[in-house]
């Protein structure tokens, strides 16, 4: 008898708690300041908006393939995973502990960015999270970001992701500062038609980010695949030092020199030397990886 292959469990469709439960080693998770403590947003009531007992983020400790890690998971179904005062402070506190424990961190991103109803507190929280991330990384702490949630990873959330030592993404993952609707609202539908889903994927989706070296690992939309990706990402170089930053400067300058006048994702992929770039969005995970891995840009340790 062979054991049955477990059915894929969509990362995109899963809740933050569901993702965590199947990402970590069974029974290893301990939550800090969980919903029983009822640390609610002090600001949402003014807008007559419902609050949530965990303020849309779960933080705690667990194990991944036997290795202890600290984890944070954003809930994209609550306020679009947006970062407010309590939400942000929970992540900042976790990162302060990570630096002192020299413990690696895995962040399950699912966020539209700053929570506008408490915009000033959220904006500053993101700055504090970035500083705490960099301080921890300077001690050699690995910071792995997982990108495949329903709300994407936008705004200030995308800047936090940009400070991680390694990123894992699925095709459904979207990583960008300004979201499609924001660009369309400010610059017009000619600049960005937010209803053109194919354009969204080509500009900020997982395949494009993987091809230009914006992320390090590409996985299918499956919790087990994200788990394998997180385990692999925890093996990648993490130390943030002057050499890494000089490499990153060079890497990003080369990207602009090579692709800076391209107007569409397909043009970038053609310049990478990929055959039939227009067909890339249709490829399944393994076919895409086979092709992409021969030609893609890689960040290596320049992150």
């Amino acid at each position: 008898m062979t054991s049955p292959t477990p059915l894929p469990r969509s990362w995109y469709e899963e809740s933050a708690r569901g993702r965590l439960a199947h990402l970590l080693d069974a029974g290893s998770f301990t939550e800090f300041l969980g919903p029983e403590r009822r640390e609610l947003s002090p600001h949402l009531a003014l807008f007559n908006l419902p609050r949530q007992f965990d303020d849309g983020i779960i933080v705690g400790a667990g194990a991944l393939a036997g290795k202890p890690v600290l984890v944070a998971a954003q809930e994209g179904r609550f306020m679009g995973g947006a970062i407010g005062e309590v939400h942000g402070a929970k992540l900042t506190g976790l990162l302060h502990a990570a630096r002192q424990l020299k413990r690696d961190v895995v962040i399950l991103f699912d966020t539209g960015g700053v929570r506008l109803q408490e915009a000033n507190a959220g904006e500053l929280a993101i700055s504090e999270i970035i500083r705490a991330t960099l301080d921890a990384r300077a001690e050699g702490v690995r910071m792995v970001g997982l990108l495949g949630g329903r709300a994407g990873c936008y705004g200030g959330g995308s800047l936090i992701a940009g400070c991680c030592s390694a990123l894992v993404i699925s095709e459904q993952g979207r990583l960008s500062v300004s979201g499609p609707e924001v660009i369309e609202t400010n610059k017009g539908v000619e600049e960005f038609d937010s209803r053109d889903r194919a354009l969204v994927w080509r500009t900020m989706g997982g395949k494009h980010r993987y091809l230009i070296g914006g992320v390090d690992l590409f996985v299918g939309d499956d919790v087990a695949a994200f788990r394998a990706g997180a385990v692999a990402a925890l093996e990648r170089p993490a130390l943030l030092d002057p050499a890494a930053l000089a490499s990153e400067q060079g890497r990003l300058e080369r990207r602009l020199a090579r692709f800076g006048d391209a107007t569409d994702g397909t043009e970038v992929w053609a310049r990478l030397g990929l055959p039939h770039p227009a067909a890339l969005p249709d490829l399944d995970t393994s076919a895409f990886l086979t092709l992409a891995n021969t030609q893609r840009e890689s960040a290596d340790a320049a992150r």
Binding site: A161, G162, V177, S178, N186, M204, R209, G260, D264, G265
Partner: peptide
């Protein structure tokens, strides 16, 4: 806020 900036990885 532009298509090109996001295409090139503004978040990074």
């Amino acid at each position: 806020m532009s298509r090109r900036d996001e295409l090139m990885g503004l978040s990074e």
